[in-house]
Amino acid sequence: MKPLLQLKNVRKDIGKKTIIHDLSLEVFAGEVFGFLGPNGAGKTTTIRMIVGLMGMTSGEVLINGISIKKDFEKAIQHVGAIVENPEMYKFLTGYQNLLHYARMAKGVTKERIDEVVKLVGLEKRIHDKVKTYSLGMRQRLGLAQALLHKPSLLILDEPTNGLDPAGIREIRDYLRKLAKQEGLAVIVSSHLLSEMEMMCDRFAIIQHGRLVGIESVQELSKQAQKVLITVEPVEQALSIIKRAYSSINMKPTNQGIEVSIDYEEIPRLNAMLVSEHVKVYGIQTMTKSLEERFLEMTGGNEIA
């Protein structure tokens, strides 16, 4: 499959300091791709270079195979983006803001504007001035301007910032739908691991301007992870587990037993406990594994 977005050895120097070191990655249609990294890691700089707001010192960004450096206008027309906060013209209404961006794209009709407004759920307030909007509403308007021209690559910097839990869920579901059903490539950036895990198919971990690794969420969740087992009696369960897995890492806690175990082994462990007449009240994977993996890869949360 042809990648929708290609970064080839992208490098950015500011003065003598190298901000981004030879970053290469590919994003395909139909996937939600995450940029994960601590503050100051270079996520936003990378996004700025992808959309042509910043020049590259060397390397190349290709969108649909078109170089953003050599043919900006052609490459950018398939991109919709929010870079950092969705800043809008506050003295204009939401609708006038959308009209402004509609005039700058090809073939965006009035009907399309209405459609997008409905999609992001701003019908009631779209003719109010943006200065009266809450952060969540601005985020929605930001999403609307990014979707106006039906882009094939959607780039959202911290898209859930300022949204309430219901809004976060709505956006998350919507982004997944855009990727799966409409075949968009979606790039999101975040420093929140849990969010990445729920939203993305794959994500790149960036630290100190370097690509630390690209992980697939699916694969990651199949790796060894911590499981919390709520059982009774605890003593019996402990000895059963010890017998079955000699070198296992486990720890009894107030809630139950924390066990580090491979994803595939969970059903077997359960069957074993049940057959020995241990009462199993719950088996819960602890999402911590991703966080630990992240910390392991980045070596803590230090800022460059």
Binding site: L53, E73, M88, Y89, M104, A105
Partner: peptide
């Protein structure tokens, strides 16, 4: 100063 320059310059207009 409004920050709108970012959204303005990522359109297919040089």
């Amino acid at each position: 100063s409004w920050g709108t320059i970012k959204l303005l310059l990522i359109r297919p207009a040089s």
